[in-house]
Design a protein around this nucleic acid. Sequence first.
DNA 1: ACATGATATAGTAAATTTACTACGCTTAAC
DNA 2: GTTAAGCGTAGTAAATTTACTATATCATGT
Lengths: 88, 88
Amino acid sequence: MKKSSRNGDRPALYTRLPMLRAERGISRKELAERVGVHVQTIGYIERGEYSPSLDLGFRIAAVFELPIEAIFSPQPFATLDASALTGG
Amino acid sequence: MKKSSRNGDRPALYTRLPMLRAERGISRKELAERVGVHVQTIGYIERGEYSPSLDLGFRIAAVFELPIEAIFSPQPFATLDASALTGG
DNA sequence: ACATGATATAGTAAATTTACTACGCTTAAC
DNA sequence: GTTAAGCGTAGTAAATTTACTATATCATGT
């Protein structure tokens, strides 16, 4: 009654939430409060245990002021390269 | 058991799906088949009766080769202006 | 040692999304 | 005038998401 069964075991969706939170020093609890969901809900999303609603996706994107595609992806994110980190 | 109760009556999310389908001459049935959901599911989404999963959002975006933000929005879309339509 | 904050696990319950079936209504094609 | 396609409405059932509680671990700070 929890994990996406469509894809057996693989995450329903990948996310950069842990990295983005780390960068901005915001905890799951704080993010949860800012988007109006339960803390554990953020946990489930970060672990890829399910795909959030688009609605929630937009609220999270608003907190980080980033497009949804920068935070979530159906495929794993690549590690950031030099140009991303130095402002190419 | 159907509509978003969080926001009483307002659509959970707005979408340009009807316009995009019209532009490309694709029916709900065809879109549904292409993203792998039931026809009625597309109907519900187009009527704003609920907010699809981010997962499904990505699949729909892939069909149109557009970013999610171009297809869905928490706020109503404005009508396209001249520059959008003439290639500004 | 103790308290605290952050995260993980487990389990239950409620809400929302998705699937499916059946019908009614229009419009276009024949 | 019948057929078929496309869309809307209704209703039920299944699956997934979200809420919430409790407990455990780990790291930090005092």
